[in-house]
Design a protein around this nucleic acid. Structure first.
Lengths: 112, 112
DNA sequence: TTGACATGCAACTATATGGTTGCATAATTG
DNA sequence: CAATTATGCAACCATATAGTTGCATGTCAA
């Protein structure tokens, strides 16, 4: 459940997800095509995506076909985005409070 | 833009976001309260969250108040979730194709 | 001004991670 | 069966990262 964020943290893995989004059912070799990395590197990333349940596989003879599984993304939406949609409103309230408290940014020179 | 994923990849940072979600305008020391980490550790994480634009700050005297900024989360939603909402449908189509192609999982013994 | 408080900067360490290479194993083809 | 193809496993390396400690700097209160 928590590996989803970890799995999405790597650009190569996001690219792999892009590829599987474009076309499902690709084998490891398919996904290696034009990918600037060794086959083993791609395999590792796919393994991480599998563990995160973002990719499901389907064996066909000696070929392992990969499919995008969008369900965990939905979990992120519901756990985080919904929360942060609420937070957006809360943040507006915060800023409103600040303004009402006369919290003009007058002492920010420290950052300069 | 790409640091958002990286920022969200760490559990400590997600907890900090949770805290700021619960209550905005907390200082570094506030956030250190009961956090199993040194003050510098928390400060580092907050810096990463700031760079990812997930946390905005507001100086008040010698205190740096932290606020959750939910906007970048919206970017994720629109870039990824929308895409994967579509993919959910595409995946269903894929599986449907498999079934229609008689792709019953008959050669999966390899994993055993 | 002096001291206490809140944060920032920098160096350092241990471990995690992305990537590699080499070899092993299983399935298709001839 | 032999050769080829597709993937898996394991060791290895370089770097990134999370965390630490120590000290410096800026701000408030007396």
């Amino acid at each position: 459940m928590t590996d989803i964020f970890h799995a999405l943290a790597d650009e190569s893995r996001r690219l792999l997800l892009d590829r599987l989004f474009e076309k499902g059912g690709q084998s490891l070799n398919d996904l290696c095509e034009g990918f600037p990395m060794s086959r083993q590197g791609v395999a590792k990333h796919l393994g991480i995506l599998e563990k995160a349940n973002l990719v499901s596989v389907h064996w066909q003879g000696r070929s392992k076909l990969h499919y995008l599984n969008p369900v965990p993304l939905g979990d992120i939406v519901h756990r985080w985005v919904g929360k942060f949609e609420d937070a957006r409103i809360a943040a507006l309230t915060d800023f409103k409070d600040q303004i009402e408290d006369n919290q003009k940014p007058k002492q920010e020179k420290r950052r300069a």
